[in-house]
């Protein structure tokens, strides 16, 4: 570990490696705070409307597939574990294990996206995409149900976008690790990606019960 750190490149603005690493970690946490507030705005909007339209939101949420949602929850939770392993091995400088678990994490992330894609497709077939072609029975509830699905797509869509960004970042890291690029010699890039990935998982931990498990 000591010898790994010695290889790290020190940027000119920092005094030493410790300061540089701490700065990156604090920076990432600060960024995640902005992310929390970003999703927070959506969550607040959703909760306000859900409290106001408990009945119809319950009806609308029955069009979501709890098994698929649950499966995806498990997938993401597992990916959090594999990400933690990636970070663990990267801190120890074990390149092969690090790469292996990173690839597993990516595979899980892609699984999540594929399942999500099926769910979206299903909504499309059912005519549950908000807009001119939105259909909902009873027609009485169409307006509020459309509100529910607008928020559903906004929240899960924004989350999916974060997953996609995560996959892209991990792909780049995997390539860099594979070719032994000097910029991934130390654990900081993986550590930061790990923080981000856990955040993405936690958002889903809130999204799943909020959207899929509405009590009557």
């Amino acid at each position: 570990m000591v010898q790994e750190q010695a290889q790290q490149k020190l940027s000119i603005q920092f005094e030493d490696i410790a300061q540089q690493n701490e700065s990156y970690i604090v920076g990432m946490w600060t960024f995640l705070v902005t992310e929390i507030m970003f999703f927070g705005g959506l969550f607040a909007t959703y909760l306000v409307y859900r409290v106001a339209n408990q009945e119809v939101f319950w009806e609308a949420h029955r069009h979501l597939s709890i098994p698929l949602g649950f499966f995806n929850t498990c997938v993401l939770l597992t990916s959090s574990l594999t990400m933690a392993l990636t970070v663990h091995y990267s801190q120890r400088g074990l390149r092969k294990q690090q790469l292996l678990w990173l690839l597993v994490t990516m595979a899980l992330a892609c699984t999540f996206l594929v399942v999500k894609g099926f769910e979206y497709h299903h909504k499309f077939v059912e005519g549950l995409i908000p807009g001119a072609n939105f259909r909902f029975e009873p027609a009485e509830h169409m307006r509020v149900a459309q509100l529910f699905f607008s928020l559903y797509f906004a929240m899960t869509g924004l989350h999916a976008l974060h997953v996609i960004i995560g996959v892209l970042v991990m792909t780049i890291l995997a390539v860099l690790i594979a070719i032994k690029h000097p910029s991934v010699q130390d654990f900081i890039p993986i550590e930061l990606t790990g923080l981000y990935w856990h955040f993405v998982d936690i958002v889903w931990i809130f999204l799943f019960p909020l959207l899929y498990l509405i009590p009557r």
């Binding site: 339209n53 009945e55 009873p138 009485e140 509830h141 307006r143």
Partner: peptide, 15 residues
């Protein structure tokens, strides 16, 4: 929007 608040003892049938 009659179905938003339905009086106790009645069915949600009002258009």
């Amino acid at each position: 929007r009659p179905l938003a608040k339905v009086v106790d003892g009645y069915e949600p049938i009002m258009p």
